[in-house]
Simulated scan of single mutants.
Amino acid sequence: MTCAKCGTTLSPESTYCENCGEHIATDQPSIEQQIPQQEEASTVEQVEKTPNETVEKITAVSKSYWQYFLAHLKAPTQKGMDSNHSNTSFAIINAALISIFFALTLFAQLSLRTSSMFGLSFTETFIPGLVFMLLLIGITTGGLFLAIKIVFKSEVDFKALFVKFGGVLPLPVALSVAAFISGLIGISELTSLFIGLLFLTIFALMVLTYQSYRKPGVDTNIDPLYGLVGLFAIVLILLSVIFSYMLAGVLVSMLM
């Protein structure tokens, strides 16, 4: 080791130059110490510069869904009937959002309004509502599949049918959100109106999807009207059974 000022050769443990008295810095890291520090700093910098991929994906899906939602809300018949397999995830999101907001509306209407009397919890109102709406959409799609296959003798693909039916659901999504907001505010009459429109719209879209598979000039096994009536009967019977079972469970929870 040499003095930086006068060049005198010094011993490794020296802290001052014996010739000129210059202070010798001994706290500088060695080359071996500097390399790991530089690598660590570089790694930290790269981590900070690398965006979170999960957040990026969620943001991209949200933007894409919002564009899809607005386009299908503006022209549900045209856009929904033209849906393709690439919109499967959006159809699932539509069904999930309708179910979630319908369940939240039930919670707002039942639990928040009757909590002082019956003490209904979130799960006792939200879960039944969520399951009921998911079953409604699932049973409707399954009924459509059977009716189209039997009546129109069509080799319908279930996934394509679900995407088509799910593609016309943005309007029910908007109605379910409106019902939740009005229920949260406490406008019961408006909430009942939005819920009624929600169910009517879902059934109307079921008819629309059913008719979209009818091909002019092609013979059918039975008259399409009877097929549609049978479809409504099956869906309503199954839903009434499920609703009665769930309602009994809620009443038991209220009385316990």
Rank of each mutant, 00 (worst) to 15 (best):
K5T: 12
T8D: 02
T9I: 07
T9V: 10
Y16D: 15
N19T: 15
I24R: 04
T26V: 10
P29V: 15
S30H: 04
Q34E: 04
Q34T: 15
I35E: 04
Q37S: 05
E39N: 08
E39Q: 07
E39I: 13
E39H: 15
S42T: 13
N52F: 07
E53D: 15
T54H: 09
V55D: 07
V61P: 00
S64E: 03
S64R: 15
W66C: 06
P76M: 06
M81C: 02
S86L: 04
F90G: 02
F90A: 08
I92C: 04
I92F: 00
L104I: 01
T105K: 00
L106F: 05
S111P: 09
R113H: 13
T123S: 14
T123A: 08
F126G: 00
I127L: 09
G129V: 02
G129D: 02
V131H: 08
F132W: 12
I137Y: 08
T140G: 09
T141Y: 02
G142N: 09
L144D: 03
L146C: 10
A147W: 08
I148T: 06
I150D: 09
F152P: 01
V156E: 09
V156K: 02
V156T: 03
F158Y: 15
F158K: 15
K159P: 06
K159T: 14
F162G: 09
K164P: 11
K164I: 03
F165A: 14
F165S: 10
G167C: 00
G167I: 01
V168W: 06
S176G: 06
F180Y: 11
F180R: 01
I181P: 02
L184R: 05
I185D: 02
T191V: 01
T191N: 01
S192T: 12
L193G: 07
F199Y: 13
L200R: 04
T201L: 11
I202E: 06
L208A: 09
L208H: 13
R214P: 00
V218I: 10
D219I: 04
D219H: 05
N221E: 03
I222P: 03
L225P: 12
L228A: 13
I234A: 02
V235G: 09
I237E: 06
L251N: 06
S253P: 13
S253A: 15
M254C: 07
